[in-house]
Design a protein around this nucleic acid. Sequence first.
DNA 1: GTCTATATGAAGATAGAC
DNA 2: GTCTATCTTCATATAGAC
Lengths: 210, 210
Amino acid sequence: MAEQSAAAPEADSVNPKAQQILAAARQVFIEQGYGPASMDLIARTAGVSKATLYAHFTGKDALFAAMVGAECRRMSAVLETPAFDESDIRAALRQIAGQFIDHLMTGRALAIYRIVVAETPRFPEVGRIFFEAGPNRLLGRVADFLRRAGERGVLTVPAPRAAAAQFIGMVRGEIYLRRLLGLEPAAAEGELDRHIDACVELFLSHYGRR
Amino acid sequence: MAEQSAAAPEADSVNPKAQQILAAARQVFIEQGYGPASMDLIARTAGVSKATLYAHFTGKDALFAAMVGAECRRMSAVLETPAFDESDIRAALRQIAGQFIDHLMTGRALAIYRIVVAETPRFPEVGRIFFEAGPNRLLGRVADFLRRAGERGVLTVPAPRAAAAQFIGMVRGEIYLRRLLGLEPAAAEGELDRHIDACVELFLSHYGRR
DNA sequence: GTCTATATGAAGATAGAC
DNA sequence: GTCTATCTTCATATAGAC
């Protein structure tokens, strides 16, 4: 069975046509949401016929799941870029919060989040993939940072993972919710910085070294 | 033009048929999401014909918006029940957090939130209605509580509204996200209490009177 | 106002030629 | 593998009788 080039559909991460279709799917799903997005439009956007589309993905569900997976891997890569200034704990926390919320406020991240949240009851797997690649990975990274800071004696954090969740939840807070629900085009720049500063101070009041 | 009983459709909060239809719409939308929910099923669930349904609501969009509005008013009423123990600040914060997160973890609240978040780009009004009736009202109440505590000298809170957002965001945190994304059937009872305690302590470290 | 029956259109999925 | 053309299904919305 050498040279079996039939190629299993899905997950064909090298095939350029598949990539092309995934990119189109991402764009259409993000713009229209899962339900209203039609396979017809996705095919046209990708510049292929529907038959070709169905040759690469078994159906709308599979295409959607593949797109979410690819997008989550992309997000993971973004969040992987570390290099926090570990010498100044205050500056490092501000940096973490800023980087995190900047990414979350992206139209693309918002759109993906909206669809995943909505479709999770019908595709439990999608919710899991998203959580592992997104929030869970981020929380792990922040927890590691807090743990290292604890080892250096800069912080006193008995439960790094829980503390990371507190910090991230607090930073995300109301500003994100307003954006998610379509209120206000964007928060003023200064307001965001003041919010982050307030969260860092609250966090350090408890976990900072006395 | 006396005795004009034609009755404008929508917002007919006394008409029993309309209530019946709204209840059916709520059930079907919650179970299936906006897209997959069919007007046919909603009519059958309500025990009326489709023609009757369209006599009361101009279309699927209007029915959905009316349902969300009604549900938000209901949520507001729930969140209105106050009576915090203002003598013990620690106990009061725990009580606020517990009541809040219990409500959020409800299957019904989760489902409504999922749909509102997903459909907000297409119905900006729905996002605004939800925010005003839900999160905004809650944050206002918590801020008022913090302000009163500040006036009594129990807390030192320069910006009550921002502090309320920090507290609520922190409490909500990771546990809620896991539920929202369908991971874990439900958090262990003890774990939730420990989480709330940790948030209250973190909050009081900064805002508590020294 | 309410029902039964139907028009109309769109979307997911496929058959067959190249 | 890829395209054009089509099939089937189903959902929104309405017409007409009571």
